[in-house]
């Protein structure tokens, strides 16, 4: 307030324009910060309510009193006895780790070939990969399902894990985008040193592209961890293969349960992903920026 008043009382003409700008911007800055703070509160509120509910006695949820009294860990203890959480997490980990590993092995060389080797048909292959990435998976799910059923692999998560051995369209796309940002001179120099294409990829490009590879791996990991449709389609009849995402969705229906317990489990499902994010924050955000606009 005093700052605004002082500025208003100033009479030096040369300073006016600069001061006027500051005078305008201060309320604007306050407004912006207030707006952000209000928005931030709204964005954090769901998490806050989930946490509060997870820590309240199960009889308190839906009573209209929002603050736990008393605070209790009971729901988390119950969660592990009422739901096979350990198994769900193990299945999710198996799915995410194998899918990511398989994807990296199969997709890195493919992406490199598309980014750095000229050959006839490269354009067509790349276009096909983009189309495959963009088309809804439901289009091919009927024949896909039939074949997995005939192979006797339905009722497991293998139908969502194994295909990654034959490349993953989105990952190939992402990796290729990253490989393209590495100057050609490096690969050319490596070739002059007598490296074959595999040598160029393994000794030069792959080490330089580590952030891109990490981003692609993380996306794959998160997508597998969060996947609901795949496990629903292939493993819904076999609880011993349920991952957390599917298990959580069926939990309230399967067992007569209360919201506090459900929120405790929901929280347990959220936490690992968020923790992983904090360890890999930079890689992640860089990867997102790569997905489209910087090609």
């Amino acid at each position: 307030m005093s700052a605004v008043l002082t500025a208003g009382g100033a009479t030096v003409p040369t300073a006016t324009s600069a001061r006027r700008r500051r005078r305008r911007s201060l309320p604007a800055v306050v407004a912006e910060h207030t707006g952000l703070a209000v928005l931030a509160v709204l964005f954090m509120a769901p998490v806050v309510f989930v946490v509060l509910t997870a820590f309240m006695p199960s009889s308190q949820a839906l009573t209209g009193s929002l603050w736990p009294h008393p605070w209790t860990w009971e729901n988390f203890a119950t969660a592990f006895t009422r739901a096979p959480l350990a198994r769900w997490f193990a299945n999710s980990a198996l799915y995410a780790v194998l899918a990511t590993g398989f994807m990296l092995v199969s997709s890195i060389p493919g992406a490199y070939a598309l980014a750095r080797i000229r050959f006839r048909g490269a354009t067509l292959v790349f276009a096909a990969i983009v189309v495959m990435m963009l088309l809804p998976p439901q289009i091919t799910s009927v024949p896909t399902y039939i074949v997995w059923a005939k192979l006797g692999l339905t009722g497991t998560l293998w139908p969502v894990i194994l295909p990654n051995l034959l490349g993953d369209a989105f990952s190939i796309f992402l990796l290729r985008q990253f490989f393209l940002t590495i100057p050609r001179d490096y690969s050319d120099a490596a070739r002059l040193d007598g490296n074959g294409e595999w040598g160029v990829l393994l000794r030069v490009i792959a080490p330089m592209a580590r952030p891109g590879i990490a981003a692609a791996g993380l996306f794959m990991f998160f997508n597998s961890w969060n996947d609901y449709y795949g496990p629903l389609l292939y493993a819904s009849e076999n609880p011993s293969w349920w991952p957390v995402a599917y298990g959580l969705a069926t939990f309230r229906g399967m067992h007569g349960t209360d919201w506090s317990l459900t929120m405790a489990i929901t929280l347990l499902v959220m936490v690992p992903v968020v923790v992983l994010f904090f360890f890999a924050q930079r890689v992640f955000v860089e990867g997102i920026a790569l997905t489209g606009i910087k090609g």
Binding site: A99, P137, K150, P159, V160, G230
Partner: peptide, 13 residues
């Protein structure tokens, strides 16, 4: 942008 992971083995399709 979701990926295709619902794929299947072999030409038996």
């Amino acid at each position: 942008v979701r990926r295709h992971r619902l794929a299947l083995p072999a030409a038996s399709v």
